[in-house]
Design a protein around this nucleic acid. Structure first.
Length: 505
RNA sequence: UCCUCCUUAGCUCAGCCGGUUAGAGCAUCUGACUGUUAAUCAGAGGGUCGUAGGUUCAAGUCCUACAGGGGGAGCCA
């Protein structure tokens, strides 16, 4: 077992400790080794000087390869230059296992290669930071709901019915009957809320759509609170307090992880502002450029972004050309430096080229947005670009939302749904609503949506025995992780992503 | 399903108008260096250029098909 972990170094300066872990990176000079050790709780440089340890211990360290396991005894020293701020100066060390040649080097790799090596990729620093923030978010979710008096309950994973009626589900065999893997625990959460008051479910969710995008997984984790006697307004208040709480916990408890991810924490802190609320109808106007937000016109902002991307691209291409010219007359060391820069600049140029190709399409899509549509991915990006904080869009056209959402009084074409859109194009992270509590309206809606009435008999009972106003929402864990960490793709937000075209490892 | 880009060493990528023996960095191995931060420096090994056809005196380079992948759209949360 292990008596001491890297995360506790800060409380043990100048003391002698024994660490066990893996060699993440190894550098050496004459008579000295610098081994970056990781032990799951953090990273720490171990310094092994020839005259501070026995010859056996020094030989052990000299034999380490990347990802070899070893132990070290040494003194904790504060050193601001180090990752985590501390290093250990070894007095003794030994090998636990010498690793074979490790496939993931300290250089950059492509996503396909890394995905195929996900079981090893998880060991790298960036992935460690993401996974530990994921853990913090999970704990913060439980922390928020528990302190607010919610009861955590589990919805079933095997289900016989289709909640939304629209999505494609994974079908499986349940003792000779066809069953589906749950796409949402919401209907069950409603039943539980009628028993327990304020509740939340936290479980895996499955969607079988062939969506090959950075925003989709086939298997993901969803948190679904449901509150008895809450209306849409109350729902929105919970959403806002909840997101603020979760982000605050991450900022307070994971500064090192956010630094590793190079996340712009000031941008993240925009969540502490009040969340703007717009109706779907106003959002449509904003998209079409008919309504400005704080003097900002969504279409003009996109045009400015486009112009910016174009000039950035030109600058990057010029710099590449300049450096290529310099290489011809450079010494070897300089050439290597320029080549490294050029590689980086080429990637930047690729991203910018993509942007200049996409933004005109986004502007076109936003300009032509029609009132009764759901937002496309680009529409969410265009809309959130004019806000700093997450945006709540409410009062949606009934025909694009699920049957269980409550109609707006006096306007049956609208329902009391709310989506929370994260800033900077990270998209929808929460979808919620006040639920329809009128039995007759619900019966009509189920028919209109062509859903099998018999599957919903138990659900309709909730409207027969003490029907009350109630509301709730669903939060996609991985989408929140992606946004908080500032990641390009959902595949890095979960240890072993399951998505269209990816079942391995 | 559609649009678009890509596939060259274990990894990341150069390879211009088709022309001699296919290049670099990392990783690996050998050596140098007492404070490195993707350490650096000197050297070595490492290739059926995704697959199958075609054009040509000549194909990594041009054409066609197929396979695999990235980005975008759609479907969707």
């Amino acid at each position: 077992m292990v008596d001491f972990y890297i995360k506790s170094l800060k409380d043990n300066v100048d003391k002698k400790v024994v660490l066990k872990g893996w060699a993440s990176n190894i550098r050496s000079g004459k008579g000295i080794y610098f081994v970056l050790m990781r032990d799951g709780t953090g990273f720490c440089q171990v310094v092994v000087s020839q005259d501070a340890v026995s010859s056996e211990a020094f030989a052990a360290i000299a034999s380490l390869t990347q990802e070899s396991a070893f132990w070290v005894e040494g003194t904790v020293v504060k050193d601001e230059k180090q990752i985590g701020g501390y290093e250990v100066q070894a007095t003794d060390a030994g090998v636990i296992h010498i690793a074979e040649e490790y496939p993931i080097s300290n250089k950059e790799h492509g996503v396909t290669f890394l995905s195929n090596n996900r079981h090893l990729w998880l060991r790298s620093r960036k992935q460690w930071a993401i996974m530990s923030i994921r853990n913090e978010i999970i704990m913060a979710i439980h922390g928020f709901f528990q302190k607010e008096g919610f009861v955590q309950m589990d919805a079933p994973i095997f289900t016989g019915n289709v909640v939304e009626g629209t999505t494609t589900l994974f079908e499986t065999d349940f003792f000779g009957h066809s069953a589906y893997l749950s796409q949402s625990g919401q209907l069950y959460a409603e039943a539980i809320a009628m028993a327990m008051g304020k509740v939340y479910t936290f479980g895996p969710t499955f969607r079988a759509e062939k969506s090959d995008t950075p925003r989709h997984l086939s298997e993901f984790w969803m948190i679904e609170p449901e509150m008895a006697f809450y209306d849409l307004e109350d729902d929105m208040q919970v959403i806002e307090a909840f997101i603020k709480y979760v982000v605050r916990q991450v900022i307070e408890n994971c500064p090192q992880q956010l630094e590793i991810l190079e996340r712009d924490v000031d941008r993240l802190k925009n969540v502490f502002q009040p969340f703007p609320r717009v109706t779907h109808a106003d959002a449509a106007k904003i998209l079409r450029g008919e309504l400005e937000v704080n003097g900002k016109n969504a279409l003009k902002v996109q045009e400015e972004d486009l112009a910016q991307a174009k000039s950035d691209l030109e600058r990057v291409l010029n710099e590449i050309a300049e450096r290529e010219e310099k290489i011809k007359t450079s010494s070897k060391g300089e050439r290597r430096f320029h080549e490294g820069k050029i590689l980086q600049l080429r990637k930047e140029a690729e991203v910018l080229t993509e942007k200049t190709r996409n933004i005109p399409k986004w502007i076109e899509s936003a300009r032509n947005f029609s009132d009764d549509n759901d937002f496309g991915n680009s529409d969410e990006t265009v809309l959130t670009r004019v806000f700093d904080a997450p945006v709540m869009v409410y009062n949606w056209p009934a025909k694009i939302k699920s049957f269980y959402m409550k109609e707006v009084e006096g306007n049956p074409d609208l329902v009391k749904g709310v989506d929370l859109l994260a800033p900077d194009g990270y998209g929808e992270i929460i979808g919620g609503s006040e639920r329809e509590n009128d039995l007759n309206v619900l019966l009509r809606k189920i028919k209109e949506h062509n859903l099998p009435m018999e599957a919903f008999e138990w659900y309709l009972d909730l409207r027969r025995f003490g029907s009350i106003p109630h509301a709730g929402f669903g939060l996609g864990l991985e989408r929140v992780v992606r946004w908080v960490c500032g990641l390009d793709h959902m595949r890095e937000t979960i240890p072993f992503p399951r998505r269209y075209g990816r079942l391995f490892p």
